[in-house]
């Protein structure tokens, strides 16, 4: 088992844990540029807190899993805890562009039944980063 543990430890070293390739500010700037508009944090808050009808029935709102206070932990429908979305509470948030796009892709579809626009992404990140 010792050899196995050592091998696994080497694997952990060899594989990048998290691709920290961006920052919340850089992501917001990128989405703003794509949208051609300044981010509106209040619009992001409203989108986050609202109940929607276009998506999947079990996830009518971002708050279903993330709660209405993104500085606090959320809980997935499976029962698993979700780290707070606000970067002030979870510094690693929004530092991996592929991860951000993956979860926007999944969750906008689950909650809204469509992709989020670049403007909506900018608004959401601007609000979450302001908390």
């Amino acid at each position: 088992m010792k050899t196995l543990s050592l091998t696994l430890a080497l694997c952990a070293l060899a594989l990048p844990a998290v691709a920290q390739d961006t920052t919340p500010a850089a992501l917001i700037a990128g989405y703003e540029a794509a949208a051609g508009a300044k981010a509106d944090p209040a619009a992001g808050r409203d989108l986050f807190l609202a109940n929607h009808t276009g998506g999947k029935p079990d996830t009518p709102s971002c708050t279903t899993c993330h709660t209405n206070d993104p500085t606090k932990p959320g809980q997935a429908r499976t029962g698993k805890a979700i780290d707070p979305l606000a970067p002030s509470a979870t510094p690693a948030r929004f530092t991996d562009s592929a991860k951000v796009e993956k979860w926007f892709g999944r969750n906008c579809d689950s909650v809204l039944g469509r992709a989020c626009t670049d403007a909506e992404k900018a608004n959401l990140l601007a609000w979450l980063s302001s908390l």
Binding site: K56, D58, T59, K102, G105, R106, D109, S110
Partner: peptide, 11 residues
């Protein structure tokens, strides 16, 4: 995975 027990979990 596009409807994984009520959620989008696509990869």
């Amino acid at each position: 995975l596009d409807d994984h027990f009520g959620e989008n979990a696509t990869l």
